[in-house]
């Protein structure tokens, strides 16, 4: 196991292994998404309070969960890269940030569309989850902006790693403070999304969607990471050999 991980951490090996790894994430992920979408849209009964609008959670909850997961992956790999000077870890942080921002945007957009029939507005400042997702999106923007404004890759890696780690300490605090703030709003009794006692016919599609999203996210990350690794190693001998041999075009 350790040997496998160690080999995976070396860029040439990662580049070769990743392309074979992607289908193992993408195929079951897409199958789960297909099942979850079908069951979520047609099999699961309508919520007695929210009617059919509750079906939006089947894409909203996985997107929101992955948006935070991506930030955690980014901060942890940035920390690993900073402390142990692992090249691949910095590449992971660089590759995961735009994906995290995309999923944060998706969570915001679907949450906003859900809010339209439920609250009667596209945006409700009183909802702490939407507001902290918005702050999370700004955090991603800041991270990517810092990365883009430093030309030297190694310097950009380490500077953005410091930011990601300081940000990771702040993310739970931001969430907590936004929650505290919105709890002070009187009369903002929001309809709970889902709820603790969920019918199995509603829950299974949701679990399928969460796992499916995670696997597809993994496949997307691997593909981004492959391009990132190739770019970072562009002056290395193994890349030259790879190109001359004509393999690895995919």
């Amino acid at each position: 196991m350790w040997k496998f991980l160690h080999r995976l951490a070396s860029p040439p090996h990662f580049y070769r292994i990743a392309i074979n790894l992607i289908p193992w994430f993408a195929m079951p992920g897409l199958l789960l998404l297909a099942y979850g979408t079908y069951a979520g849209l047609f099999v699961a009964p309508a919520d007695y309070q929210q009617g059919d609008a509750f079906r939006i959670i089947y894409v909203h909850v996985p997107a929101a969960y992955l948006s935070m997961m991506a930030y955690m992956i980014m901060a942890v790999s940035a920390g690993i890269g900073l402390i142990w000077r692992m090249k691949l870890a910095h590449a992971v942080a660089a590759a995961v940030a735009p994906l995290g921002a995309s999923f944060t945007f998706l969570a915001l957009a679907t949450g906003s569309i859900w809010g339209r029939p439920m609250w009667g507005t596209w945006w409700e400042w009183g909802d702490p989850r939407l507001t902290s997702e918005l702050v999370l999106l700004f955090l991603y923007f800041g991270y990517m902006a810092l990365r883009n404004s430093i030309d030297d890759t190694s310097k950009a890696d380490r500077a953005s790693a410091v930011l990601a780690m300081v940000g990771a300490v702040n993310v739970p605090i931001i969430h907590f403070s936004v929650e505290w703030w919105s709890s002070l709003h009187q009369g903002s009794t929001l309809v709970r999304k889902g709820g603790p006692a969920m019918d199995a016919a509603m829950l299974y599609p949701l679990l399928a969607m969460i796992f499916g999203f995670t696997l597809v996210f993994g496949a997307l990350l691997l593909r981004r990471l492959r391009a990132e690794v190739l770019f970072r190693e562009r002056r290395k001998r193994w890349v030259r050999d790879l190109i001359l041999s004509g393999n690895g075009k995919r």
Partner: peptide, 22 residues
Amino acid sequence: MGPYGLYVWSCFALTAIVLVIC
């Protein structure tokens, strides 16, 4: 899907679009 159909379908369509773009 009743009155919410448009909202639900647009969310799923948006998700598909974002995944494809990624």
